[in-house]
Design a protein around this nucleic acid. Structure first.
Lengths: 193, 193
DNA sequence: GTCTATAGGGGGATAGAC
DNA sequence: GTCTATCCCCCTATAGAC
């Protein structure tokens, strides 16, 4: 693809990462994407439509960079894959920063904008289930309810650490260390005894 | 106290909890407080002034409800106090909801507004140290670095769960259960072996 | 201190040509 | 599909009476 539409969504992710959802101006987005405001409304109907599609877009993109690996890379074990999926969101690269910032903004916006909640809840659920499935591969004897709870905590922790990182209160390396420790702690809690 | 000024700040907390920082309209605030917009500008100079004073107000209030207990209440052990301090922020009461929503808004705003970062970082540090101290009382043999890491994770987890609760993706009871499980997990990780 | 009335402008959204 | 031009609402902030 890389259709015109995608160019606008990429631009939206950049603008949101720079200004926040509240700071997003359709005019600025238009300039960033190199199109007119009219075209944006033609494609996305209104401001909320822009936001909703951007959320979907960053979600797909995150899925790509957390799951796709090189063609001849060695296959990962579940434990490694688990760490990958949670630690890849804590990297100081432009794309990850954009995704994390946009995700955090959308989460915060959803508190006051019911229109965003459904999409967000669905995306969160997919993510939690993915983590729970990986936890289940590492700890096959653990009951499903415990796996689900651990996955919910790990993903919520990830969001909390990400916000602290982005709001300048936590160095990225330290955030990664804390996240790794959290995985460790949850896995011990799931150990057979 | 309970001056006219305080009435406006209480109203501001309610409006922010309902609409968010970005959704606060001075006219709506005026109606909520039962005064005119002119009076609000007379007291607080401008929109930013309203926000700054409201966030200060909310902070003082949170300190009150997480630390003050009844005069003849039995003293809490460190473990109970730890649970109190972390679970009190996950309650579906108007005041807690207001405070949590405002805190989340502040955290999210700080990502794009460096002016807010310093206050936020300081408040977070105080909170983390408080939790670390309580963890240290429950697990006196644990090294300081491990206590600090556990406290950072628990407070970050608390913020993450709070956001999910407020954005409608997580029932409050479930959030509390998850938080309690997180405390449990971190305490086992700090056990002497 | 408190109100009413209003200026002033930013920005979302649309109309209509191409 | 894409652009230009523009409407007009909403919301911040101020002026001035009481």
């Amino acid at each position: 693809m890389a259709s015109r539409n995608t160019r606008i969504l990429e631009a939206a992710a950049r603008v949101i990462a720079r200004r926040g959802v509240r700071g997003l101006r359709v005019e600025e987005l238009a300039a960033e994407a190199g199109v007119s405001t009219g075209l944006i409304y033609y494609h996305f109907k209104d401001r909320t439509g822009i936001l909703r599609h951007t959320l979907e877009f960053i979600n797909d993109r995150a899925e790509r960079y957390t799951t796709v690996r090189g063609p001849d890379a060695p296959p990962l074990g579940p434990r490694e894959e688990l760490e990958q999926i949670l630690l890849l969101e804590l990297q100081d690269t432009a794309e990850v920063r954009e995704n994390s910032a946009a995700w955090g903004e959308l989460r915060a916006s959803a508190v006051f904008d019911p229109a965003l909640r459904e999409d967000l809840a669905r995306a969160t659920l997919v993510w939690v289930q993915e983590v729970a499935a990986l936890l289940g591969q590492v700890r096959p004897m653990a009951p499903a309810a415990k796996l689900a709870a651990a996955a919910e905590r790990l993903t919520a922790l990830m969001e909390g650490l990400s916000m602290r990182w982005l709001s300048g209160g936590l160095a990225i390396d330290h955030a990664r260390t804390l996240m790794a420790g959290g995985i460790e702690a949850e896995l011990s809690g799931l150990e057979p005894r």
